[in-house]
Design a protein around this nucleic acid. Structure first.
Lengths: 226, 226
DNA sequence: AATAAGGTTGACCAATTGGTCAGTCTTATG
DNA sequence: CATAAGACTGACCAATTGGTCAACCTTATT
């Protein structure tokens, strides 16, 4: 039940306080990580309301009191979890780069996004749940961050269009379609498993989805003639 | 429909007194409708766990006890709500018809699905939440119903392919893409509003989405040359 | 050893909530 | 009117849960 850890430091001479602080900082980081990971899992299954701090704490291997020592309230740990997911969400958009040809960028974005959704299904689902639930826990700062990065990427797409590299298209709606198409397999895994009569999706399913999505988007945007 | 009326064994006296008159039946139908409508709204915002029977009852204009008189448990009203949504979900699939040319069918399906998502955003969101949350409240019967209808429609698509009317494509994944693409605006309205800096999406947004999705799917599937 | 300071937790509390129940109200029928 | 059956509800209860707190533990420093 304790996060104990394999302590025992080889060189525990305890001369400098600084070393201890480092150790404490490390422990804190580890516990924080465990709690955030557990939070991702529990929140992504039960949603904000359905999740209990007790279950998160248990899954992280600490007491509920410890969770509340690290994160004052349930909202606080939830926001910390969401913040982290936003980083992931933003990082995938790196592929939308003005210096890259649109057909390559979109191909890579689709691939990366689907790969993320396969590797990180819980953050993917949690993000979806938050949006579907009205983004009630998204503060102004997070909203602004989302808006800014999306605006930037829309400008990239408009740039491609202006440069004649791509047919005119509403960049916002293109992004909406890309997001939906690349997340659905993780987001609606239950639905896919129901339809495919599988107990779990495998790598091949995601690869099939990637190929179909890539094909449809590239040809659909008239970008496949390269 | 399946409003389980717990009839009581009133007929023990041998004669089924038909106390239930038309007015009562009407009232029951009206109240049931109000409760299901309220349930849709509250569940779609708060999720199963976050919703309270008290809030649903209040929104329906009856007491919590009345809700529990109509639906024994929270699960029961939730399932009734989901059942209804499944009807809607299934009805849209009517467009996928073997007697219709694929480019027409897909165009109509996209249009109908997006229109549904605009007119019925709450059922749309609730369905999405249920799937994202792992379809934990979907009983075997509902699962089978989903499987059967989807299997049927996949056969239609395979039929189009066999008839040379359409390029080979994995029909399941095509449906996944269609679902995701046509629901995202309602499902992720909060995200879209964040990105578009709007307080609410309007008809034009859905029309833009429809046009782009139609264009990309038809051309992406090489169906636009008909 | 003594001190200090942060880390950890069991026990506990107040609020919420799903569900129950006894009793009241309404209305068709005899 | 009297009856009976369903419709309806306020009051209530047991369980859950977010959050608190005093006590205890661990460890570096003096």
């Amino acid at each position: 039940m304790k996060l104990k850890t394999e302590k025992t430091g080889a060189g525990v001479d305890g001369r400098q306080r600084k070393r201890v602080d480092q150790k404490q900082v490390l422990m804190r980081a580890q516990n924080t990580e465990k709690l955030l990971k557990a939070g991702e899992r529990v929140f992504s299954i039960r949603g904000f309301d359905g999740a209990t701090t007790a279950e998160i704490a248990k899954k992280a291997g600490v007491s509920k009191s410890t969770l509340h020592y690290y994160f004052g309230t349930k909202e606080e740990i939830y926001e910390a979890v969401m913040n982290r997911i936003l980083d992931l969400w933003v990082s995938a958009l790196e592929e939308i780069d003005a210096d890259v040809e649109p057909h390559v960028a979109i191909q890579n974005y689709v691939a990366r996004k689907i790969e993320y959704s396969r590797i990180y299904p819980e953050p993917t689902r949690l993000w979806a749940m938050e949006m579907t639930g009205g983004a009630r826990h998204f503060q102004a700062e997070l909203r602004q961050r989302v808006f800014d990065i999306v605006e930037e990427k829309c400008n990239v797409i408009d740039g491609w269009i202006a440069a004649g590299k791509m047919e005119p298209v509403n960049p916002h709606h293109l992004l909406f379609l890309l997001w939906a198409s690349t997340q659905t397999l993780a987001e609606d895994a239950a639905q896919a498993e129901m339809v495919l009569k599988k107990s779990a999706l495998d790598k091949g399913d995601f690869e099939d989805a990637r190929q179909l999505a890539t094909r449809i988007f590239l040809r659909g945007l008239n970008l496949n003639n390269t």
